[in-house]
């Protein structure tokens, strides 16, 4: 049996090599080879440039963050620190805003992701139940929210009235359920074999039991995907802090604190008048800013290469038209 398989494989290989050799001596193909070589070289150069442009700014920031502050201001630090020091990180970590902001950022990422995961999964499960009476209505209700939104001002007034402004909860409650995440999860759940659920139902399991014990264990990959999307969004978001929690220092996030640090420089550069009149603006040294930037990006940059599989599946499912 095995031999037979091996034989056929060998035959196939022979066939392929024969074919290739035939093609190889076919004159037009030879000309193509030259074209292919040029193509490959150009492609290689393109990819190299692409990677350099993508990586350089990040590596440069890293180098500056480990470089002596006064020395870095002279410019010319590229990919290796000229005068190595860890002082910048010590300065940044000692800043009250940064360390407190980091705690809030971690909290909003963890709590926000868990809440969003639970809510979206449950909603997706309900909408994926083919026997459910209000299935299509509930689905439409959420799909509409993907395309129509009230806009900044009405939303802000709503949050104010709900006492969500100047509070931690504005980070995790309003965005908890999203039409897109629900759809991605629903698509995945609908792809699971229905017999599993039927078998559980025959055994007398109720809907919640099925959700928790039958469907959820099978949905781990898609749960990971959505958790990743939500977590990245939570960690990187800053605009909600600026709109709703600007006044309360105890709830500002790491990103917001970083923005305050960086924008002091931008506004100075833009306002030429401010610079010439010698207004004293409190500017953080470039090396300290670099250190703060690195600290803010580090958690995600360290994690995302290991999670690639998840966001690739998630995007592919999400791209399927509704």
């Amino acid at each position: 049996m095995e031999e037979k398989v091996l034989d056929t494989i060998n035959e196939n290989i022979e066939e392929v090599t024969e074919e290739e050799s035939k093609v190889k001596y076919y004159p037009p193909k030879k000309r193509m080879k030259g074209g292919d070589l040029i193509f490959n070289i150009c492609n290689g150069i393109f990819m190299l440039l692409f990677c350099v442009i993508t990586l350089y700014p990040v590596v440069n920031t890293l180098a500056i963050s480990f470089n002596d502050g006064v020395d870095a201001m002279r410019g010319g630090v590229h990919i290796i620190p000229r005068m190595f020091t860890t002082e910048n990180y010590e300065i940044v970590l000692a800043l009250k805003g940064i360390s407190r902001g980091a705690i809030i950022s971690v909290l909003r990422t963890v709590i926000g992701t868990l809440l969003a995961l639970a809510a979206n999964a449950l909603l997706a499960f309900i909408v994926s139940q083919r026997k459910f009476v209000f299935r299509s209505q509930l689905s439409l209700f959420w799909v509409i929210t993907m395309y129509v939104n009230g806009g900044m001002i009405p939303v802000m007034i709503l949050y104010k009235n709900l006492h969500l402004t100047n509070s931690f909860w504005v980070y995790v409650i309003p965005g908890m359920v999203s039409g897109f995440n629900m759809l991605v999860m629903r698509t995945y759940m609908e792809g699971l074999p229905y017999e599993l659920q039927e078998a559980a139902q025959i055994d007398g399991a109720g809907y919640m039991r099925i959700f928790l014990n039958v469907i959820s264990p099978l949905c781990k990959p898609i749960y990971a995907t959505v958790a990743l999307f939500v977590a990245v969004g939570q960690w990187n978001s800053w605009f909600d802090t600026m709109l709703y929690n600007r006044m309360s220092d105890q709830y500002t996030t790491l990103q917001y604190e970083l923005m305050k640090m960086l924008s002091a420089v931008t506004s100075l550069k833009g306002n030429a008048s401010a610079a010439t009149t010698g207004q004293s603006v409190n500017i953080t040294p470039i090396s300290v800013r670099a250190a703060a930037t690195i600290i803010t990006m580090a958690p995600i940059v360290a994690l995302y290469p290991f999670l690639q599989r998840y966001f690739v599946t998630g995007l592919t499912i999400g791209g399927v038209k509704e």
Binding site: T54, L55, V58, V232, W235, N236, S237, W238, Q255, L258, M259, L262, T296, M297, I300, V301, Y304
Partner: peptide, 8 residues
Amino acid sequence: LPHFLSWI
């Protein structure tokens, strides 16, 4: 990589 960095 850049997708995972915030606009800030």
